[in-house]
Design a binder for these strands. Structure first.
Length: 734
DNA sequence: GAGTTTGAAACT
DNA sequence: CAGTTTCAAACTC
């Protein structure tokens, strides 16, 4: 349905005109949709018609295209699109683009929309240029309208007409006013990493945010407009939600806080409670990840509306924030560092990354960041958008064995998927052997339907994919509802269930001098292990698997964890860490071997990574760690969502660490401005508390919490923790 | 590749 | 909260 309509749109009138929205817009705008034709053409083929195909297989479909786009655009030099709009165009696609570019792009896109669809008030700009972009638009639009969920008719039809206008206007304004300014209504626009934008938009917010832009003859008009938009919103939001669920692994979707919230509200049914509509997939993630955020955190943003950079709580928010604020400031040349997404994977949400100073490192707690890359920082984030594919390739390429995976992952997950090996197991092993097991693990569930934490995929917050050899798998986009519901259920039972199991201190990386910090010891398993026979020397041990030492929180027996034994009596604090680290150092050659990889990882995680990554760097991390920890972490990080509980935990714990291990984390802490801290973190976030209490594992988690919770200084502690995220150090306080 | 071991997750 | 069962990964042969 969509397709035909859309295509027709190009032919100016036809059905499109019929849509109420369209009509409304037309009435509003002096300009007539002559140019719509351009758009139409573009849209028809690509976007709407093939929606199902596009979304259906997140893994494959979108990637291919995205990939192509990326390549094309990634190259700034490429003038193809550039010309007038050129850079912008590329930006959309190319992740690598600067924030500014992105910003511009959004504006352009909007423009495009205008020209293509209805000019509405935006009319101001000449559409001629837009036509050029039209080509690209379709691409972007694809994602938008394609979704089956979305009502083709209302959604697409209207979208084309409506969205563009409103958005365009806002975007134009923003761009016009100030690209320099920082404020960006553009942010309101939705974007996917590559070019797919416009997925979701908060119409209301747009309208409210861009009062200047939108001109209504009368109050009634505005209301009417809203109404129209609203109508279209619902399907749109649905579509978005579905879209998100189906986004290709590498895709990054960025929404404004408002938009995201709206989505959440609208799509609540689709999204897990408190989860963010925004889905962020990063390199590490090949699959779509659901980002579950604390709603509360987000709320703040909402309130902030335009500027509240400070309040960004969730990842998505962060992202948004970056785009909104930071991105704008961004210069192409760049401070890559500015918009640093703390850890992409992790709870990005929890971390508020607004400040430029932030270094990814701090955030990156081991969780996500660690992953391969440098992506930890926002910059990486941005880069990733632009260059995700390239990076991956690089990274893995270095590994040597991994290349296949990386490559595949990088640009097209499909590839990896396609990269069929005869048996799933083999595939899996292959990958693992490649050393990049981390990239993606595949599960082999038989009875859990991949809806329990037994399933690594599910636990990681990712859908199972072809390579999985699971049976009766429900962990697929098709069963999204079930997955979300189950997830929710599990989270209700244990808020930390989806938190990264291992919390790492990324700080170490920052401080080059400190090798000790780099040691796994700095990281700890959130709950600790309970090993009895493995002596914490095998992967059965989650601590060992995660490449971290055991801590007091562990209930293991006969612990011989190479990364650090739990000292029953020893305080966990910094000292403990030091001890552990020392031990680790002392460890036999084996340990050393093991440790090395870890260190490397840390480095990668390190904020430094945020800087443009050199292939070397990338390569290092890529090196297969003896432990798959990286992998898991990476995954986990993405997943985490949830509740961020992990973060919270770490935070609480972290406090103490700050006191003792000031040197390590100090920097980070300093860097972090309170303003930027998420509400949750700042305040007594109930969530954290709740998490603690609720968590079944409270055993380990709770201790630190309780201790800290009592302390008045909590706040500061949290801050510190957030940045550094040393989970266990906190224990030391005692 | 099949079977065993292990410990987390889930259940009672 | 503790004990038991279930489950799937890790490991061994």
């Amino acid at each position: 349905m969509d397709t035909p309509e859309r295509s027709q749109i190009g032919t100016p009138i036809s059905k499109f005109e019929d849509s109420p929205v369209f009509n409304y817009i037309n009435s509003l705008s002096p300009i007539k949709p002559v140019k719509s034709i351009h758009i139409t053409q573009t849209f028809n083929p690509l976007n709407f018609s093939s929606l199902p195909s596009v979304f259906t297989s997140p893994h494959v479909n979108s990637h291919k295209e995205s990939r192509l786009k990326r390549h094309n655009c990634s190259d700034p030099s490429k003038p193809e699109f550039s010309s007038e709009n050129g850079n912008k165009v590329c930006t959309n696609e190319g992740i690598g683009v600067d924030a500014t570019q992105l910003y511009d792009k959004s504006a352009e896109l909007q423009d495009n929309f205008d020209s293509g669809v209805s000019d509405g008030e935006a009319s101001v700009e000449p559409s001629s240029e837009h036509s050029k972009f039209a080509i690209e638009l379709p691409r972007t639009l694809k994602y938008d309208c394609g979704s089956p969920v979305c009502d083709p008719t209302p959604c697409c039809g209207t979208e084309a007409g409506c969205m563009p206008t409103s958005l365009v206007q806002c975007g134009q304004e923003a761009s016009a006013k100030g690209s320099s300014e920082g404020e960006v209504h553009l942010s309101e626009m939705c974007r996917t990493d590559q070019t797919k934008e416009g997925l979701e938009c908060d119409w209301e917010s747009l309208i409210s945010d861009c009062p200047d832009i939108l001109i209504f003859n009368s109050p009634n008009d505005s209301e009417a407009f809203k109404g129209l938009i609203q109508k279209s919103v619902e399907p749109l939001t649905r579509f978005c939600s579905s879209l998100m669920s189906q986004l290709p692994r590498n895709e990054l979707m960025i929404m404004s806080s408002n938009a995201s919230e709206k989505l959440d509200n609208e799509v609540g049914m689709y999204m897990p409670h408190g989860s963010k509509a925004v889905t962020i997939l990063h390199r590490g993630m090949r699959r779509r990840c659901l980002d579950f955020e604390m709603v509360g955190a987000r709320r703040k943003n909402l309130g902030d509306g335009s500027n509240s950079s400070s309040s960004m709580l969730s990842q998505s928010d962060e992202n948004i924030a970056c785009h909104d604020k930071q991105l704008v400031p961004f210069k192409p040349g760049g401070d890559s560092s500015r918009c640093i997404l703390p850890g992409i994977g992790l709870h990005l949400n929890a971390l508020a990354t607004t400040s430029k100073d932030y270094k990814i490192q701090s955030y990156l707690p081991g969780s996500t960041a660690s992953l391969h890359s440098p992506s930890n920082s926002q910059e990486p984030f941005l880069q990733s958008l632009a260059t995700a594919s390239s990076e991956r390739e690089t990274d893995h390429g270095e590994n040597g064995a991994a290349p296949v995976e990386d490559v595949s992952q990088a640009s097209a997950y499909q590839v990896s998927d396609d990269f069929n090996q005869n048996s799933p197991k083999k595939k899996r092993r292959r990958l693992e052997h490649a050393g990049e097991s981390d990239a993606c693990k595949r599960c082999n569930c038989k009875k859990s339907k991949c809806l329990k934490l037994y399933c690594e995929c599910f636990a990681a917050g990712v859908y199972c994919i072809e390579p999985c050899s699971c049976q009766d798998c429900f962990n697929k986009p098709i069963h999204e509802d079930t997955v979300l519901a189950t997830r929710k259920q599990i989270e209700s039972r244990n808020p930390l269930a989806f938190a990264p199991k291992v919390i790492r201190n990324s700080d170490s990386v920052t401080e080059i001098g400190d090798e000790s910090s780099k040691t796994p010891a700095s990281a700890r398993h959130k709950r600790g292990c309970n090993c009895k026979k493995s002596n914490c020397l095998k992967k059965y041990c989650e601590c060992y698997q995660g490449g971290v030492g055991c801590s007091i929180g562990c209930r293991c027996e006969g612990c011989k964890n190479a990364f650090g034994r739990k000292d029953g009596s020893a305080p966990i604090g910094t000292e403990a860490e030091l001890e552990e680290e020392t031990e680790a150092c002392e460890n036999s050659a084996v340990d050393k071997v093991l440790q090395k990889p870890e260190i490397q990882n840390n480095e990668e995680q390190n904020p430094a990574c945020a800087l443009p990554m050199t292939p070397l760097r990338i390569s290092r991390p890529m090196v297969p760690l003896p432990f798959s920890s990286n992998v898991k972490l990476s995954r986990a990080s993405f997943i985490t969502v949830g509740s961020s509980s992990g973060l919270y935990t770490s935070q609480k714990l972290g406090k103490p660490s700050i006191l003792r291990s000031v040197p390590k984390f100090e920097k980070h802490f300093q860097t972090v401005p309170e303003d930027e801290m998420p509400e949750i973190l700042r305040g007594n976030c109930t969530p954290s508390t709740g998490v603690k209490s609720s968590s079944p594992n409270s055993k380990r988690v709770s201790p630190p919490q309780s201790d800290f919770g009592a302390s008045p200084s909590r706040r500061s502690g949290r801050k510190l923790i957030l940045q550094s995220i040393p989970s266990f150090p906190s224990l030391t306080q005692h």
